[in-house]
Amino acid sequence: MTDAMIEVTRLTKRFGDRIAVDHISFSAKPGEVVGLLGPNGAGKTTTMRVLTGFLPPSEGGAKIAGHDVVTDSLNARRNVGYLPERVPVYPDMTVREYVLFWARLRGRRDARARADAVIAQVNLSERRDTLIRNLSKGMRQRLGFAQALAHDPPVLILDEPTIGIDPRQVIEVRDTVRELGRTKTVLFSTHILSEADHVCDRVVILHQGRIVAQGKPSDLKRKLRPDATLEEVFLSIIGTERGAGK
């Protein structure tokens, strides 16, 4: 477990009386793409926000590249690139200014060269001097990736990167995630299961703040039925849970 890039231990997050994340534990090794699955409100975003240092945990903890997200927060944050669900942008900046800003703020000395490289990586070179307000939704999504990659972090946390974009772009994003997964640890959330099946080495299924299953998609499927889809696995697990709860 020591070589894990993401290590979550009995992590709990409460908002008042509501428990958003309930004692979850999982980890991700270098070069692994882990999918965080679950219905809306399962606790995916909250988990990611704790991992990125945006929210402190109520109980338990998490480490990024060996750095505790609470006690060694700055070092943990240095190692994470984060793409929130709604890509946050400064509409009055150009693509290049925006990526450069984040590269600099996250301490890249060669920020200019890095920004250009990242912009090329996400295929926005032709738009580098375009104001962000004039970008299409798909382009904004790619810009979001560029921002997350600006400081070349070993860990990437992507919150629903395929939400609200057209099918061609979904395929693009999938390819990008798979590509990035070769060199980086990627944690990405989705509620579209076929997507996770295509991209992830491992999945963690969250339901009502708890982990209800985790493992390789193929293993999870085999457990249920030889020809089962991840969707069927998911429904069977959530269904059982619901039945058990009542």
Binding site: F54, Y82, P91, R106
Partner: peptide, 13 residues
Amino acid sequence: EGTMELLLTAPVR
């Protein structure tokens, strides 16, 4: 704009 989330998750005080 949501950029606060990025500012607060950047390695800065």
